[in-house]
Design a protein around this nucleic acid. Structure first.
Length: 111
DNA sequence: CATATGACGTCCT
DNA sequence: GAGGACGCCATAT
């Protein structure tokens, strides 16, 4: 049951879907909250498997360095930046984001 | 079964 | 603050 690999992806996607608009979270925090421990890379894997027509806000997930893990030269990278700015998240030069301002921890009811 | 790779994280310099 | 080394988890070959 919980051993289903697809179930794990489903769990990860569910956590990502709970990120409020205008906020961002990190791969590590999501993995931890999903019960995956330090499998931050596992989260990246799950997001990569997402279909193009997904409703999951994958663009709100960045790395602990406060930067977009997707290359700004790729279409996905540009799309991520576009959507974030559209939600009010300021993306500075070098695809950097102020984690101190926008970071959100799963389960935290306080915005 | 061993190696390499990837939308990562932490520690050290 | 930036960059490199090593560790962690899963998949591909």
């Amino acid at each position: 049951m919980e051993t289903d690999p697809q179930g794990t992806n489903q769990r990860i996607w569910h956590v990502v879907a709970s990120i409020p608009q205008g906020r961002v979270s990190t791969y590590g925090d999501i993995a931890r909250f999903a019960g995956l421990g330090r499998a931050a890379r596992r989260v990246g894997w799950a997001l990569r498997q997402l279909p193009s027509d997904t409703r999951v806000p994958w663009h709100r997930v960045i790395n602990s360095a406060g930067k977009l893990s997707l290359p700004s030269t790729s279409d996905a990278g540009r799309l991520q930046r576009k959507r974030l700015e559209k939600e009010g998240v300021t993306v500075r030069s070098g695809d950097r984001i102020a984690l101190a301002t926008y970071r959100w921890i799963p389960g935290d009811t306080c915005r």
